[in-house]
C-alpha cells in the first residue's frame, strides 16, 4: 500500500517538476546579465525572419563589442500585441503592413516604418512533387490535399487575394493559424501541397519542393521595420535598422529568399 502512495507522490512530483522546469529555465538567464556595461538590444521580429536576422544579429554583435542582441521571433501579430501591451523592446520587424499599423496606430514607433523586404507565396509540395503540381490552378484539382493559412493571418490573406485575382477557388483540407503549421503539414506528408512563403520553402531545406507561380507577385507582402518609441537603446536600435536596410542586410535577406524592399 505504501508503494502505491509513494508512486502517487512520485507522479505528482514529476508533474510539478514538469511545470517548474519551464519557468525555471526562462527565469534563469537574467542572472548572468549583470556583467559590466553589457548593452542589450531587444529585437522583436516576425518568425519568417529567423534565419536572416540571426545572421545579421551576429554580424551586428561582431561590429559592436559589448552589445548583446536578444532576438524574439514569433507571429508578428502576437509581437504587435506584446508591444501594445507594454513589452520592452527596441526594434520591431513585422511581416505585414497591417501588424505594423497596430503599433504605429498606438503611437509606439519612433519614426515612420521602412519597408525592408518583400515576400511572395510559393507552392510547397512534398519532395519530388509526385502529383505534378505546376501552376496555381493545379491546386484546385479535386484529388489533392491542400493546406493554406487562414484568411485571418497574412499568408492566408495573400492566398485569398490570389484566389480572387485568378478566379481559382481552392478547397483546402485545413486553414492553419500560421505559415509554419501549413509548412509542417506538407513536411509530414499529410498534405500534398501548401501555400507558404518562398522563404519558408528555402528554410525547409529540401523537406519540401517549391513551385513558383507568376500570380504570387499580385499578393507580395511587405516587411516593415521601425525603432520603437520607448526603446531603451534608441541609438543602437537605429544602427540595427540601418544594417537591415543597408547593403549587407539586403544581401542576407535575399539569400534567405526575400525580395528587396522599396
Amino acid at each position: 500500500m505504501k508503494t502505491r502512495r509513494a508512486l502517487a507522490v512520485a507522479g505528482l512530483t514529476l508533474l510539478l517538476a514538469g511545470c517548474g522546469g519551464g519557468s525555471g529555465g526562462s527565469s534563469a538567464p537574467p542572472a548572468p546579465s549583470s556583467a559590466p556595461e553589457a548593452r542589450r538590444l531587444t529585437v522583436l521580429a516576425a518568425a519568417s525572419l529567423t534565419e536572416a536576422f540571426t545572421g545579421l544579429a551576429q554580424r551586428f554583435e561582431g561590429d559592436h563589442p559589448g552589445v548583446d542582441i536578444r532576438l524574439n521571433f514569433a507571429g508578428s501579430s502576437d509581437l504587435a500585441q506584446q508591444i501594445v501591451n507594454g513589452a520592452p523592446a527596441d526594434v520591431f520587424a513585422a511581416a505585414s503592413d497591417a501588424t505594423m499599423k497596430t503599433v504605429t496606430d498606438a503611437g509606439l514607433t519612433a519614426e515612420a516604418p521602412q519597408i525592408f523586404a518583400k515576400n511572395v507565396l510559393q507552392i510547397a509540395t512534398v519532395p519530388g512533387n509526385p502529383k505534378g503540381i505546376a501552376t496555381f490552378a493545379d491546386l484546385a484539382k479535386p484529388d489533392l490535399n491542400i493546406v493554406v493559412c487562414a484568411p485571418q493571418v497574412p499568408c492566408g490573406a495573400a492566398a485569398e487575394k490570389i484566389e480572387k485575382a485568378t478566379g481559382v477557388t481552392l478547397t483546402p483540407v485545413s486553414e492553419e493559424a500560421d505559415v509554419k503549421s501549413t509548412l509542417g503539414k506538407v513536411i509530414s506528408g499529410d498534405a500534398d501541397a501548401g501555400l507558404v512563403y518562398v522563404t519558408d520553402v528555402s528554410s525547409a531545406k529540401g523537406d519540401v519542393q517549391g513551385v513558383s507561380f507568376p500570380e504570387a507577385d499580385q499578393a507580395a507582402t511587405n516587411y516593415p521595420i521601425a525603432v520603437l518609441k520607448d526603446a531603451p537603446q534608441a541609438e543602437l536600435a537605429q544602427q540595427f535598422v540601418d544594417l537591415v536596410t543597408g547593403e549587407a542586410g539586403q544581401n542576407e535577406l535575399q539569400a534567405a529568399g526575400f525580395g528587396p524592399g522599396t
Binding site: V147, A150, P172, V173, S174, E175, E176, A177, S181, K185
Partner: peptide, 13 residues
C-alpha cells in the same frame, strides 16, 4: 488538435 487535425471551419476548428 492543431498539430494532428488541422483547422477547418465545421470540420476540425
Amino acid at each position: 488538435t492543431t498539430a494532428f487535425a488541422g483547422s477547418l471551419q465545421g470540420t476540425t476548428r
